[in-house]
Design a binder for these strands. Sequence first.
DNA 1: TTGAAAGCGCTAACAG
DNA 2: CTGTTAGCGCTTTCAA
Lengths: 377, 377
Amino acid sequence: MAALPEILARGGARWDSPARTGSGIMSERRTGWEGNIRVDDRVPRPPAATLADVAAAAGVGESTVSRVLRSHGSFSPKTRERVMAAAARLGYVPNRIAGTLASSGSKLVGIVIPSLANIVFPDVLRGASQSLEADGYQPVIAVSEYDPLREEQSIAAMLAWRPAALMVAGLEHTAQARALMASSGTRIIELMDLDGPSIHLAVGYSNLEVGRASARHLLARGYRRIAYVGHDLAADTRAAKRLAGFEQVLREQGLALQDRETVAAPTSVEAGQAGLERVLARAKGVEAVYFSNDDMAFGGYFLCLSRGIVLPEKLALFGFNGLAIGRVLPQPLSTIRTPRVEIGAAAARLAVAPFTCDPPPDPRLDLGFELVPGGTA
Amino acid sequence: MAALPEILARGGARWDSPARTGSGIMSERRTGWEGNIRVDDRVPRPPAATLADVAAAAGVGESTVSRVLRSHGSFSPKTRERVMAAAARLGYVPNRIAGTLASSGSKLVGIVIPSLANIVFPDVLRGASQSLEADGYQPVIAVSEYDPLREEQSIAAMLAWRPAALMVAGLEHTAQARALMASSGTRIIELMDLDGPSIHLAVGYSNLEVGRASARHLLARGYRRIAYVGHDLAADTRAAKRLAGFEQVLREQGLALQDRETVAAPTSVEAGQAGLERVLARAKGVEAVYFSNDDMAFGGYFLCLSRGIVLPEKLALFGFNGLAIGRVLPQPLSTIRTPRVEIGAAAARLAVAPFTCDPPPDPRLDLGFELVPGGTA
DNA sequence: TTGAAAGCGCTAACAG
DNA sequence: CTGTTAGCGCTTTCAA
């Protein structure tokens, strides 16, 4: 690794002295800081206090300290006092690494998600982290960027921490990843998709069904000449499933997609805008556009706004996810809302729940979705 | 904890049999699954292979296996072969818990952030996780929901994992939290704020300066009757600093905020909309509105759009963050863009970098910000 | 190049 | 109610 100057150079950044910033409302209290941290940094730090140190300081055995600190087992009130006092005095912070190794029961839960580029997976994380924290667990996260190989590596890395459970987005994984998860002895919870076999448990909704519902809605509103604008489908299998469901319903009505623009990029408002632009340029009298998700649809929405294309009379738009911003638009976006936070929370509960009964075969928790009619389709 | 049925009841959810969903494009391959997982679930799982198992299987000593697997130290090519083969055969996954305890060098980096409710901190996480992963580290995250006490608890919990470093948003923490961090021996990196003293390292930008720049911009454009619409400021000290900087510049020009609406809720588009609604209801001839961030500003933007308020002639809007969606609006939002992903990445580099020289006193990495003139102010 | 042995800091029996 | 004693699975000297 590099020395500090190199690190900074890499980022093209610079160190400021405190004088350069922060000269405003906040007082600097430099003295306290200097008298504190600098000294600590220079003096070789004494090794952190261990349970044995606390035991010695309190004049009791190690196991007693352990029992008191975890309020597990029995001990007298006065022993408790002395242990707590000693621990506080020494600034003792228990070492979970050691605790986990000894008890062979980790309080870590691995979460492998494909992306942090929009609010979708942060929502899932939020639900999970809230629920996990309440139970004393901690989420370790990894982002695969929709790359199956990176996902596989992340899964292997997570498993090395012997987590209590592993949450992974989607049902599609490399064969190696599936094998790893299946034989790991770790409870595996797959998220956001129910269309296919799961390893242990799956929590989410059916993307196929989402696509079908979207198509039914557009057809019911009388739209027939429908185009699709999506992002990179090879990577996002759930978006692919939605489209498959959508086309299935069209097919059942003897219809087909009028046009189909797949932007070779991750999902984004810019991609949605560019995609719709291209569809409009090909001008085939398209009446409605089904977007791979809300972000893409927002791009389309604002393009219409800029061009004065009246929604939904001249063009109808339909998205997916039900993001908050879609609800405050002058005309709320027609879309499908998914219970993302709830999915995260439910997955977390399943992750830490001791199963007192055998789970049913191939159990899947369907949290459903809600079609939001909106005003754009 | 509860039995499975209870867990499901809590969430009001239901288990579906596979037949209910997934009957579409995906084939079910139930047999393989049944012949696989169900069996594994019923037979008491053999304990995971350990290093000792691999050593025995390969007919070598444990330390040899350890050396080979970490490609550290010396061993003959043929020994390597046999070890690798044995490891693969046993499906060996190294136990990082044990490894970390033995080597007293964790590959975990703690990240404590206040919120996952908008894209801001996910962006930081994205930068961090990308950079961390490249160096073989894993992020453990905790969300404080802007609650200092929860932050303190999260920090304590993270420290218990003896992480290589700890990243925390902001410079304001409880005294207890500061003490914990300062005496932990763990490298502490504070994010997204430079206005005040840091514990070890700080990476971000000056919120005070952001507020000042915003005010200067609005003044330069000729706006004088300016209102502020923000979210819960007690919790979000960085938003408070921006406002402080903003008001400071106004004061310097002998001006003051015309109106000030603080929605008692976390940041959201809805809150921004509600806030602006109230400001407009008080009708004081406000010319421009400074929002606590882009999400809030979007709420205001769409309110104006709905009401036919012409931007920026009738009302000017200014945000903060520089979110992607603001750039595709019919009139791009005037705002200040911050290098969030870069902040996460830089923090991650600093987290894992071995300092070969003493860091300068109170070092702070100023990644700056960029004023985006936009079209709304 | 290799193996034996001593921990890392804690938990979990098991005696007292 | 409390202390002693083994490990948990790995890394790391230190000899061989």
